[in-house]
Design a protein around this nucleic acid. Structure first.
Length: 696
DNA sequence: GAGCACTGC
């Protein structure tokens, strides 16, 4: 422990913290910042210390290590708090928590008086929650100037910017403990990064001394292709010409038991070649890696506020990401990083920092959260944060919130909106629960909301062999033809009837972890509903359920009210739909949907959808049939909407258009926002094209 | 008739 670089800087750090309310600490990998900063401040007698982490596992493992170093029982002086699990007590002085948990805490106590020190760790990852916390911290240090210290840890390329945001606070540099990594660039960008990765990996395997190889690819498809090509080539090598090799895929939808294979060391005289997504960038650390191959690409989910549509695009990584990837080669000894792009691309085209999540997500939930905090001294609409989102994105959020009565026509939060903010759900689902409580179907709505919260983790990732699973398995219910929400409800109820039998999940191809998560979420939502609901609460299944089962009318009505901004109307003579938002989109029901056709081969006239996804064709994922008479009042409300009033009478569009993408190295950023959008769409299309070419 | 980077309250 004494060998950690940060220990030598203790005096300097303490001195700087004593003199300044905010300090930025640049601590590279291996500096020990996550475990040591809190202990230093604790030793100097500061009161309760909160340290946020973007990931649950990190909060738990770092807390465990600190407790061990201090020789105390975990949960006593040192503890952690993550969703569903609070291991702290009255004696806790050092508390590790996920940034989401700290946001929840500040909902109950906006001044966070409990803490003397708040450390936002890994701020350079720019998670949505960390960005919001940074905005709140800027306000908090003014209000609690005498008794609060804030530390923010970040990466080299971002430090000055964060410092500027906090009134030019001091920046301390703490070196990391990485071995040198030699970076090698390609002369030009390869026409196929898959082939290029293959060739580079084989070259390393044949020529270079022992040490594992880590290859960064963009997704499961490419990983599987590369793994099988590598296996062929390695098998074809002449026996005895070089050491053996095992090839391991690593990505998020791999079942956990296959993921952990990368943690067991290879047999002697054998090299491991790990082909991974960016899960290996931060979430999982593979020991023994000496060579890194970096394609320079990543798959990124982005939200388009003008269409309300998500897309998953292959985009170039940022410099911070490239350096993080390279660093994975130098953890145990000096290593090499092969970048499959020229240094010119790195210098001129890569952004310094990954585009923050706040500029890539729908902000309905965040805006509702901030409004519910009721901070008179902060202008939410200016989003006075490190990288403000576009005004278009904010207006989209306001419109959504207005349509579900979370805010009134002047943009002020309503009492129902206040309650919705308490629920750890996106606003549309929170509203669905509130409506369901009125219609006597909260019991079912809780299940639907919980199932949707876990949706992506329910089905296992081996889709090659089980492609048509959803349709071919007959034992799973089909939503009675009414749509995917109803199916999700029915699936959970089947599981409930087996007394939550693990074997039942396995038999039906459902991820056990995912289903257990659903049960936890459901319980949590139920408890919060009990807390915030003053009137009678219908959380237990009671009699009269049978007639309800027929068509789930009330539940579908509640969903319709909750998803008021996610409605679609079928086109006259075919099964395409037109969304009823502000910019009508022509979309299709996703082919995986269980929504059924009527006798004439037609889908229902109206549906609500959980999300729009461009893949690249536009689809509605998770749809539910609703009735026209429920939809009409919503359409009328749509007509009455006045965005100008919602935004508090301020024209934000004209205000600061150049702030939209502050970090793009493009010189011609001062174009109108529509042209700007077009530009980025063209850019995205170009990258998709390149990525497709790479796959061939 | 078709597809899914990674987190998290």
């Amino acid at each position: 422990m004494v060998s950690l670089p940060i220990v030598q800087y203790e005096e300097k750090i303490i001195e700087t913290v004593e003199r300044n309310p905010v300090v930025v600490v640049i601590g590279e990998t291996g500096s020990g910042k996550s475990t040591q900063l809190s202990q230093m401040l604790h030793r100097r007698g500061y009161g309760k210390i909160a340290i946020t982490q973007p990931r649950r596992v990190a909060a738990v493992s770092v807390a465990r290590r600190v407790a061990h170093e201090l020789g105390v029982q975990l949960g006593e002086e040192v503890g952690y708090a993550i969703r569903f699990e609070d291991r702290t007590s009255h004696s806790t002085r050092i508390k590790y928590l996920t940034d989401g948990v700290l946001l929840r805490e500040s909902l109950a106590n906006p001044e966070l008086n409990e803490y003397s020190v708040i450390i936002l760790d890994e701020a350079h990852e720019r998670s949505l929650n960390t960005d919001i916390l940074m905005g709140l911290m800027r306000r908090l240090v003014n209000i609690r100037s005498s008794d609060l210290k804030v530390l923010i840890t970040s990466a080299t390329l971002d430090g000055e910017k964060v410092s500027k945001f906090f009134a030019d606070c001091p920046v301390l540099n703490v070196p990391g403990k990485l071995y040198p990594v030699e970076v090698l660039y390609s002369r030009e960008r390869p026409s196929s990064y898959l082939e290029s990765s293959l060739k580079t990996a084989l070259d390393i395997h044949i020529r270079e001394p022992e040490g594992d190889i880590l290859i960064f690819m963009t997704g499961q498809d490419d990983i599987e292709k590369l793994v099988s090509k590598l296996e062929d080539k390695v098998r074809a090598l002449e026996e005895g010409s070089c050491m053996d090799a095992i090839i391991l895929p690593l990505h998020g939808s791999l079942p956990p038991e296959l993921q952990v294979r990368v943690f067991s060391p290879p047999p002697p005289n054998c090299r491991r070649i790990i082909v991974a997504t960016n899960i290996a960038e931060t979430s999982l650390t593979v020991d023994g890696v000496v060579y890194v191959i970096d394609s320079g690409y990543v798959k990124q989910r982005q939200y388009n506020p003008s269409s309300g549509m998500y897309s998953l695009d292959v985009v170039q990584i940022s410099k911070v990401q490239a350096n993080q990837r390279a660093g994975r080669a130098g953890r145990t000894r000096p290593g090499k990083c092969y970048r499959l792009y020229p240094s010119r691309i790195y210098n001129d085209e890569f952004l310094d920092v990954t585009v923050p999540e706040i500029q890539r997500s729908s902000l309905a939930g965040s805006v509702l959260y901030l409004k519910s905090l009721d901070l008179p001294d902060i202008d939410i609409l200016k989003f006075d944060f490190l990288d403000p989102p576009s005004s278009e994105s904010l207006q989209d959020a306001l419109k959504q919130l207005f349509l579900i009565d979370a805010i009134d026509e002047n943009g002020a939060i309503t009492s129902i909106g206040q309650k919705m903010a308490e629920l750890p759900l996106e606003p549309s689902l929170a509203k669905t629960l509130m409506e369901a409580n009125n219609y006597g179907c909260l019991y079912e709505a809780l299940t639907v909301a919980a199932m949707l919260s876990a949706e992506t983790t329910l089905l296992p990732g081996q889709r090659k062999t089980e492609k048509k699973r959803k349709h071919t398995i007959s034992n799973l219910p089909d939503g009675s033809g009414l749509g995917d929400h109803i199916q999700l409800l029915q699936i959970y109820e089947c599981w409930d009837q087996t007394d939550f039998d693990i074997g039942w999940c396995k038999d039906n191809g459902l991820q056990v972890r995912g289903m257990l998560f659903v049960r936890d979420v459901r319980k949590q939502l139920s408890q919060i509903m009990q807390k915030i609901s003053k009137g009678p609460l219908d959380v237990r299944a009671n009699g009269k359920r049978e007639e309800f089962r027929q068509d789930y009318r009330n539940l579908r009505k509640a969903l319709c009210m909750g998803y008021a901004n996610q409605l679609a109307e079928r086109k006259m003579h075919h099964n395409g739909y037109r969304t009823l938002g502000f910019q009508a989109q022509v979309v299709q029901v996703h082919p995986s949907s269980v929504l059924s056709l009527d006798d004439l081969g037609k889908f229902p006239d109206y549906v609500v959808y959980h999300e729009l996804i461009a893949t690249p064709r536009p689809y509605m994922r998770n749809v539910c049939a609703v009735e026209m008479r429920w939809v009409i009042p919503i359409i009328n409300k749509l007509k009455s909407l006045d965005v100008y009033k919602l935004s508090g009478g301020v024209h934000h569009v004209e205000e600061e258009p150049e702030k939209k993408l502050p970090d793009f190295p493009k010189k011609d950023v001062e174009v109108a926002s529509t042209a700007d959008d077009r530009e980025s769409r063209i850019q995205a299309a170009r990258e998709r094209f390149l990525a497709r070419k790479g796959k061939k």
